[in-house]
């Protein structure tokens, strides 16, 4: 089954809701572990369909997830998930959230479908119902006959799928995924990301904790950047990336002499850098369309077009360095 086909099944198998408005609300959250401050006044209000929780190891990501699940108690501040105060409503939050924890294993000694069934039972489902849903979740994640094999023989990719099925079995509104792609090879990683993206597209809320920036860029529309227990950025990725303008360098026969004055004549900041190279400032897709139409009209050939736009990685690093919310 292709990732997309699998993902389509996920949609039908899980039937998530599509709530709107902020679903993560953190205000002045401070939390100590072992006498050491781990969260130092975390403030964020997030409403994205998929939120990337990004930060280096030790930034406080896992501790924040623990607080969001009501397992860890903040010494100060308020933590709300889906509008529910934590840890007071931890039980309700747990029934509405699926958690795929990096640090958790898969139950050994039994098969994959048994492991997923137990995970469902732990959220309060009856065994029969849990077994039924376990098969549905595994079908959706394209786990075939492997589900009947003992989990100790699973590959990393299969184990991650099994863990994802364990987090999905009770049909949660929110999926909290802690480093889901760690240890996967590139095709396996992409396949899992596609599945998660489909879960997001069908209306499920996702909190993705990761230190792999590409995963966050691929899946998320909002970002919660953490560094040393504090928030350095919380908000839409588009805002972090800034306006979509960039300086472009185009190379090709006659581009410098012909195209530079034409672009300048249409109000685009452009200059030639030799006979065959033009540099121009694009303010968005419209400027790019104009560039290509001028290339066509003048029967020019572009051999190379190179951008200098801020990459996602640059934007994240910049936000980390600025340390501003």
């Amino acid at each position: 089954m292709t990732p997309n086909a699998a993902a389509t099944d996920v949609t039908s198998a899980t039937g998530a809701t599509g709530a709107t408005g902020p679903w993560i609300e953190l205000s002045g959250v401070q939390l100590d572990r072992g006498g050491r401050p781990v969260l130092r006044g975390v403030d964020a209000v997030l409403s994205g369909r998929a939120i990337g929780l990004v930060g280096a190891n030790g930034a406080g990501k896992s501790t924040l997830i623990g607080a969001l699940l009501g397992v860890l108690r903040a010494k100060a501040g308020t933590v709300r998930l889906l509008g529910l105060d934590l840890p007071a409503h931890a039980q309700e939050v747990r029934t509405r959230c699926g958690v795929m924890a990096e640090q958790a294993g898969v139950f050994p000694g039994g098969s994959g479908v048994e492991a997923v069934t137990f995970a469902g039972q732990l959220t309060g489902l009856a065994r029969r119902e849990s077994l039924r849903r376990a098969h549905r979740a595994l079908d959706a994640l394209a786990v075939g006959e492997e589900r009947y094999r003992e989990t100790s023989g699973y590959s990393t990719g299969m184990r991650q799928r099994c863990k994802l099925a364990m987090s999905l079995v009770h049909d949660p509104e929110v999926l909290i995924l802690d480093e889901p792609t760690v240890g996967l090879d590139p095709p396996g990683r992409l396949q899992l990301l596609e599945l998660i993206r489909e879960l997001r597209n069908e209306g499920r809320r996702i909190l993705l904790s990761t230190h792999i920036l590409h995963d966050a860029e691929f899946l998320c529309d909002e970002l919660l950047l953490m560094d040393n227990g504090a928030v350095t950025y919380a908000g839409p990725i588009s805002k972090l990336m800034g306006p979509k303008d960039e300086t472009l360098i185009a190379r090709g026969r006659g581009l410098g002499t012909v195209l530079a004055p034409l672009l300048a004549g249409r109000g685009i900041e452009a200059s030639s850098a030799g006979e065959h190279e033009v540099r121009f400032h694009s303010r968005g897709d419209e400027d790019l369309r104009l560039f290509w139409s001028l290339v066509d009209e003048n029967d020019l050939e572009v051999r190379k077009l190179q951008g200098s736009a801020l990459s996602f990685e640059d934007a994240v690093v910049g936000a980390m360095e600025r340390g501003s919310v």
Binding site: L69, G70, A90
Partner: peptide, 9 residues
């Protein structure tokens, strides 16, 4: 695997 019941919570 203790994480599952601990997250139970």
């Amino acid at each position: 695997t203790l994480l599952y019941p601990l997250l139970g919570p």
